[in-house]
Design a protein around this nucleic acid. Structure first.
Lengths: 217, 217
DNA sequence: CACCTTCACTTGACAGCGTTAAGTGAATCC
DNA sequence: GGATTCACTTAACGCTGTCAAGTGAAGGTG
């Protein structure tokens, strides 16, 4: 074994060890984050869970936001996968409907992640290791949505006045997001009897799509 | 002047003075709250603005949430007034549409208040002086919405499968809320070109209502 | 082998937050 | 004139995210 080979081997081990602690931080953070939510998850608690001091975390993540963003990004890949499957549906209208329901399922199954990614304003844009702005999975999902409504517009299935793809996409996304987020923040409100958000979303999708189609069936 | 008259007079003065400080706290808090948002508004900053110590505030308000809830309640009366005017519109469908737009205008004109009341989970239910749960103006507005969709259902203007008033109300409320809240949290996102939320809401209301009517025009 | 460097991690703090128990002093009451 | 009330202050508590400086083991190099 040459000296350079030894160097690279030990370097590799060091990096592997660092990656292991990094992963340990992520695992501990995920557990707390999912069970307690963002704000109740403290750097001190994460550190204690893996037997480090809080400051150790800062050698692996810029700040708390960066740590949690990384957590969420990993979970969001499952949304991406669901969207990918749905992408094979030919009819852009049926695809849109299915995307809406998949999005809803994801939100209700990953409440902490959803709350953080879509109901919080981040301090910093998401950056990768080289400092470039990252295209996160939720933006992939948005691109997917945009493409789906664009296809519908191009096929002429929507009413002529609904020709703006971003507006249409934001209408659908916003609408679904609203039912979900209102439910998250207000489902304990004693004054309001909340309906199952999944059913309300379904009703909304049906109504919104029916009202957007050219030949309103 | 009898002794009891003196007593009530001085009592009244004391109470008036206390009410004045209370109002001063509210005024200072509103200014900071509107310009900086909830989280950036600290008890210490409010107190400094009126020349008191932070603890003084706790003689007038249970905690920070209670103070801000009271602020918001006052501002929400303008939404209530707008709703009241709209209530005179005969056609429940047109009324619904107008309510949606009034709600949107209110949200975009009172962003801090809206964010706090609808995008935050409160720790405690809102209580009045006697400790009873308060019916806040936003719940009045919800009741208004509920009544409007109920009227539409009773008049038979909506499709027969849309017979659940709470679901319909939550669909409309949630839909509008989603566009607004998504815009609040993500309008600075470099990946997404956001359309004017007012226009997106209008498009959504048109589509949702058209898709909900029995004789889809 | 001995010295030097690297760097993951710790120590000990800082400034800020919401909140509270105890104290003060002026106004009020009897 | 002494007792009482109470709006407000003082001084702290425990918590947060975060950082500058230090430590010590591992690895590199003469």
């Amino acid at each position: 074994m040459t000296t350079s080979a030894i160097r690279t081997a030990s370097l590799a081990r060091r990096e592997r060890q660092k990656a292991e602690t990094r992963q340990a931080i992520l695992d501990a953070a995920r557990e707390l984050f999912v069970s307690d939510g963002v704000e109740a998850t403290t750097m001190r608690a994460i550190a204690a869970k893996i037997g480090y001091t809080p400051t150790a975390i800062y050698h692996h993540f810029r700040d708390k936001d960066a740590l949690i963003v990384e957590l969420c990004m990993a979970d969001f890949s499952s949304l991406g996968q669901a969207m990918y499957k749905i992408g094979r549906i030919e009819d852009p209208v049926e695809r849109l409907r299915r995307m809406g329901m998949a999005y809803t399922d994801f939100a209700l199954d990953n409440t902490s992640q959803y709350r953080f990614m879509f109901m919080t304003s981040l301090k910093h844009p998401i950056l990768d290791a080289e400092g470039k702005v990252v295209t996160s999975p939720d933006e992939d999902a948005y691109g997917f949505l945009l493409q789906t409504v664009t296809e519908g517009i191009e096929k002429g299935v929507y009413r002529p006045e609904l020709s703006d793809a971003p507006e249409l996409a934001q209408m659908v996304w916003g609408g679904i997001h609203g039912i979900i987020s209102l439910w998250f923040t207000h489902c304990d409100d004693p004054h309001i009897v909340f309906r199952d958000p999944r059913e309300t979303v379904r009703t909304m999708c049906d109504a919104m799509i029916r009202g957007s189609l050219r030949n309103s069936a």
